[in-house]
Design a protein around this nucleic acid. Structure first.
Length: 524
RNA sequence: GUGAGCGUAGCUCAGGGGUAGAGCAUCGGUCUGUGGAUCCGAGGGUCGUGGGUUCAAAUCCCAUCGCUCACCCCA
């Protein structure tokens, strides 16, 4: 039986020549960010799941249903007992087996206690606790029932209940990162980066994972380029400079049409007051809202502002604006931030309905959109997150950053064809005869040492066919080595575009090719 | 999690009950030291998978899986 493998849902391969585009975008990011004194941080793709739960919020969609999680079971014997309990095959007529089950249950409870006493909680403590309480209760019940002697049916039900409860203690204590800000902050705290002088300016490039239905510009493994500034400053100039850097980067990538939207969503002082105000206003008009928006009145009133339903737009327009409810400090910050943008000649639009989905944002939020992306027109989002470091157990620290979806940026660039035809290969080497092969091998090595990309045929091939292969590989030049060349101690350099050939000595050849290879390398 | 559309060669797609097709691509020949063109030829498929109807199913019916797009949510 044959099985046809394919990339798992929501992941894809990035093949050449498209992969060259990716490299170019990432190189551009590295260059631009370096000029703003940002340095790269390389982060693990796996983190403790709890990190994301703390930073993004338990109730956020990302954590509650979009995170890829996996068990790390090495760390504890907890899993041994859990598996024994939850996988135990019902053999209620066998008292010995029942003894074993009870023993495993007892050990599982002990492990749970240990886990609950741990300083660093890796598993969600409330899940552990409720499992512990339920199991404790049922273990007691089980013992009583066994002492009294119970109907097999009753015992069966109880054991199944226990097994289900045990299964809730899952080793999903690791998560594939759905975004990288939490990882950056974790690393900042873990390595004491706050003790380094000045602000910490970091950027990262890499894949993120979210388990959601794929659609245009949205994958389960997607790629982000992001930057974060951590430290003691929350100066509006910093926010503006980060955005300037982002826009310079987009410009250098060749993205011409895009729009920067900015907003302020206040701080822990003024936002809750506004949210309450908003909620009460929404209550008044809730009969005119759709089911989703009605639900959000309780769960997250800010998100109602995000609704795209046409019939809700007039209602939303009339709702109170967060910008009218900022405290003095936040209003001042937002004003100065806008002035900083103007002083940098950065065009922007205020979008008072721009509320970021993640819990940790404060004050400045922003988003860049580009046309041609289907329903997902945002390519980049970011903002200020002053409380996050503290929330994750670090010292009071200000933070600001953005994350940019590379998949969507490239979709907006639409330049795959343009860059696809570029010469990838400098030299296709053609040899005829065994002694020519020896010369070809040595020459190929020297060319490659000079950074000149060279293809050398492995098998002897007729000249006509070899040139055909050179053509198909879209090589810039062919180098021919045969008996004539060996006799003259020269090589034939053939320009594959013009078809012109010249006989050159090795040093002449190297010189000639170094010039053209150098030119194409500079473009990269 | 919800809804819609689409699954036939590597790619783009025809065929809508009676022998599995085209163009492009690949490989070989034409062509034994000169590529791109022409011409000739070849390989490549359990028509997504499973079941049903039928003498006969790529085709009709059912189920299932996959892909795509949209909703939700977000970058």
């Amino acid at each position: 039986m044959t099985h046809r493998f394919q990339a798992v849902k929501g992941t894809r391969d990035i093949l050449p020549p498209e992969s060259a585009l990716w490299n170019r975008v990432e190189q551009t990011a590295r260059r631009v960010f370096a000029t703003y004194n940002f340095q790269e941080i390389r982060l693990p793709i796996l983190e403790q799941r709890y990190l994301f739960e703390r930073s993004l919020g338990y109730e956020s969609d990302i954590v509650s249903k979009q995170m890829f999680t996996l068990e790390d079971r090495e760390s504890s014997e907890l899993w041994v007992w859990r598996d024994l309990v939850s996988d135990w095959k019902l053999r209620i007529d066998d008292p010995l087996a029942l003894d074993q089950f009870e023993y495993a249950l007892k050990r599982l409870l002990q492990c749970l206690e240990v886990e609950l006493q741990r300083e660093e909680k890796i598993l969600r403590p409330e899940i552990l606790q409720s499992a512990r309480d339920a199991l404790l209760h049922n273990a007691e019940k089980l013992r009583e029932l066994r002492e009294k002697g119970i109907t097999p049916q009753g015992l069966e039900v109880l054991i199944e209940t226990i097994q289900l409860e045990a299964a809730t203690v899952r080793g999903e204590d690791l998560g594939l990162r759905p975004e990288a800000t939490a990882s950056v902050v974790r690393a900042y705290i873990q390595h004491g980066l706050h003790t380094r002088p000045g602000l910490t300016k970091l950027y990262y490039i890499g894949p993120m994972f979210r388990r959601e239905r794929p659609q245009k510009g949205r994958y389960r493994q997607f790629y982000q380029v992001g930057a974060e500034v951590l430290g003691s400053s929350d100066h509006p100039a910093l926010d503006a400079e980060v955005i300037e850097m982002l826009l310079v980067f987009l410009d250098r990538c060749g993205l011409r049409e895009h729009t920067l939207y900015v907003n302020s969503i206040g701080c822990s002082d003024c936002r809750p007051k506004y949210v309450e105000r908003l909620r009460s206003e929404l209550q008044k008009v809730k009969d005119h809202l759709g089911a989703d928006s009605r639900r959000r009145i309780e769960t997250n009133p800010l998100r109602v502002l995000d609704s795209k339903l046409p019939e809700e737009q007039p209602i939303i327009e009339k709702l109170p604006s967060i910008l009218d409810h900022l405290c003095d400090a936040c209003r001042d910050h937002f004003q100065k931030f806008q002035q900083e943008l103007k002083d940098r000649s950065l065009a922007y639009e205020i979008n008072k309905r721009l509320v970021r989905g993640l819990d940790y944002y404060i004050r400045t939020t922003f988003e860049v959109t580009a046309p041609g992306l289907g329903a997902q027109n945002a390519i980049c989002g970011g903002g200020r997150y002053d409380g996050l470091v503290e929330l994750l157990g670090g010292p009071p620290t200000k933070g600001m950053g953005f994350a940019l979806g590379t998949d969507r940026l490239l979709l907006a660039l639409r330049q795959v064809e343009e860059s696809g035809g570029k010469d990838q290969l400098d030299v296709f080497m053609v040899w005829l005869g065994a002694s020519a092969l020896r010369a070809a091998r040595m020459l190929a090595r020297r060319l490659r040492e000079q950074g000149i990309s060279t293809e050398l045929l492995y098998e002897e091939t007729k000249l006509k066919k070899a040139l055909g292969l050179a053509d198909k590989s879209s090589a810039r030049y062919a180098v021919l080595i045969g008996e004539d060349e060996l006799a003259q101690n020269k090589f034939t350099l053939r320009d594959m575009r013009s078809g012109q050939q010249r006989a050159l000595s090795e040093s002449e050849l190297l010189q000639e090719l170094a010039a053209s290879a150098g030119a194409s390398a500079a473009e990269e």
